[in-house]
Design a protein around this nucleic acid. Structure first.
Lengths: 338, 338
DNA sequence: CTGAAAGCGCTTACAG
DNA sequence: CTGAAAGCGCTTACAG
């Protein structure tokens, strides 16, 4: 009553063959649904397999066939719900297509990233979806490609070289977000959060562009960097609020920073959308029920994940495809915060 | 310039053997760091391997050795940050121990759960951590155990049978949460959210117990079920607010429901902690920077994940261990909402 | 200390 | 339509 049962003897096609009174080859073919096997025989094999509780050893089959149905997905920050939503989209699509995902979390550690990538290589991953940590050398792309493993880069692009990529149009997205604030008659508009990396660069660019278009001079002091977390957004907002003359609105690096900013606002009894206008970026699930509901740029994270998976599947299907790019066009979602 | 490079010829120990001028066996042993191999020879082998860019084919090795270093982790709801945090804890611990995780998301679908479990079995997973979907038959535990795969059940217990389990003490947790509200002089206290399952049952039990202890009659009308999402919490709170006489406080099924409830409160211009007292459960990361910051029961999700992984590793190490249980004792975290 | 041989559980030409 | 044989890339007794 206290031990946990274990060690069921594993049956092989050899056992099934004996049970069905045919050869190993016939079992293999029958189980694959090969037209070479007569229907009656196939049926007999299937019954025998079920009777003894045979389970296919996929890894053995893949070793022989030199194939693999596992796909590595490496994510830099699962604590950000944006990535969790993307991951779910990827996983759904991949499992539907008959794959299974080897998942790793790097927590922005380059060393951890190298470690898990190597591990996935040893595991013979059929391909890899990588959302690279900050500071990933561009050479990583050619390295992985050199391994013969199709690679899709997610969210954070990694320079020029040809590779498949899925992400969002950060520049135009933040251009739209900032323009919305300008059209609501804000002039002193902050840029809140973010620390480094291409995504920040692009979002900042969209912000500056919108400012320039409206002939509002760019003010370095209004961009407050921070770690891309709620805590970071919270602190950045406090800094922004301390500025004089008063800043009346801000676009945020992403939604979770905006959520942190909302919290800082609330702490001072300020209501977003009334006393201060705030735009997020991503449209994570929690944006809709933030207090107050967060206006943001919708990149449809789940769909982004599915699209990434779709591109990867196409690549596996046809390795000679030219480099594929999916760029989600962020859509303005107006709720209450701006 | 437009094709993505692929198909590097894969080297095997055979190639390394040729390069180093030794036999396959020697290569295998040398790479494993066997003391049987003379240091000079081992060094020569390692150099040869590095020179030709050899990479270990772990799956081949595991086939031969009948081992596996992949561990399946199946999660029912990754859209709930609680599970994302737990997953990160599990993954961190497992990777540190030299394993790699095969991750699957079931989205509360029993069919998907069966599918991925089967897939993990075929993949030869060394063991499985399962957070079962609602409505999982208790027989699943013995099924999986019968496969010879060590199983750890996560968060939602699955009846009596001996198995390893990691979760939290929901009853005592919600007892404490409710008691806190009572001690703050609330009498009409709602229970907000949750739909079915053991976890709800236990949390409800803690709620009723605290009420009983304070001689407050249990009122069926004050428990408002809902889907366990922010949207669910939002709607449940609206219902609760419509009740007369007025309800002044509520414990929530979990944090994300509480967050949704916060949003409903905000919509009516009500401030949690002043106009209404609200307790969450889990202490997900976003609770701290909710608006206002959410008082909740801390189960330390990340640590829970690590503990689950720890138990599993112990089980793999010694299959004869008696059933192990880790129950996180939730701690009261007072912030602003209550 | 090192090599030749068998075998993990499959698949796939090749005969028949 | 079905079987015997070779082989995927490793590991591990067993000799020497």
């Amino acid at each position: 009553m206290s031990r946990i049962k274990s060690d069921a003897k594993a049956f092989t096609i050899h056992d099934v063959a004996a049970e069905a009174g045919v050869s190993k080859s016939t079992v293999s073919l029958a189980l694959q649904g090969s037209p070479l096997i007569r229907p009656e025989t196939a049926e007999r094999v299937r019954e025998a397999a079920a009777r003894i509780g045979y389970v296919y050893n996929r890894r053995a089959g893949e070793l022989r066939r030199k194939s693999s149905n596992v796909i590595g997905v490496v994510i830099n920050d699962l604590m950000n719900p944006f990535f969790a939503e993307v991951l779910v989209g990827i996983e759904r699509k991949l499992v539907d297509a008959g794959y299974i995902v080897l998942m790793a979390h790097t927590a922005e550690s380059l060393q951890r990233q190298n470690q898990v990538l190597m591990s996935m290589r040893e595991q013979n991953a059929a391909s890899i979806i990588l959302c690279p940590v900050l500071g990933t050398p561009k050479s990583l792309v050619t390295d992985v490609q050199g391994w013969g493993i199709p690679l899709l880069v997610l969210v954070r692009s990694l320079g020029a070289g040809p590779y498949d990529f899925a992400g969002s149009d950060n520049e135009s997205g933040n251009f739209i977000a900032t323009r919305h604030l300008i059209e609501s008659n804000h002039r002193r508009i902050g840029f809140l959060g973010g620390q480094s990396g291409v995504v920040l660069h692009q979002r900042l660019k969209g912000y500056k562009l919108a400012l320039a278009k409206a002939k509002i001079p760019f003010d370095e002091l209004l961009v407050i960097p921070s770690v891309p977390t709620r805590q970071g957004g919270y602190m950045a907002m406090q800094q922004l609020l301390a500025l004089a003359p008063r800043v009346t609105a801000a676009v945020c690096y992403n939604d979770i920073e905006a959520l942190g900013a909302l919290s800082a606002l609330g702490e001072r009894g300020l209501i977003a959308g009334k006393d201060f206008s705030l735009m997020g970026f991503d449209n994570v699930l929690e944006a809709e029920h933030a207090n107050p509901p967060l206006s943001t740029m919708d990149v449809r994270p789940g769909d982004l994940g599915e699209q990434a998976a779709r591109l990867l599947l196409a690549r596996i299907e046809d390795p000679s495809l030219p480099p594929q790019i999916f760029l989600s066009a962020p859509r303005l979602i107006l709720r209450q915060s701006a």
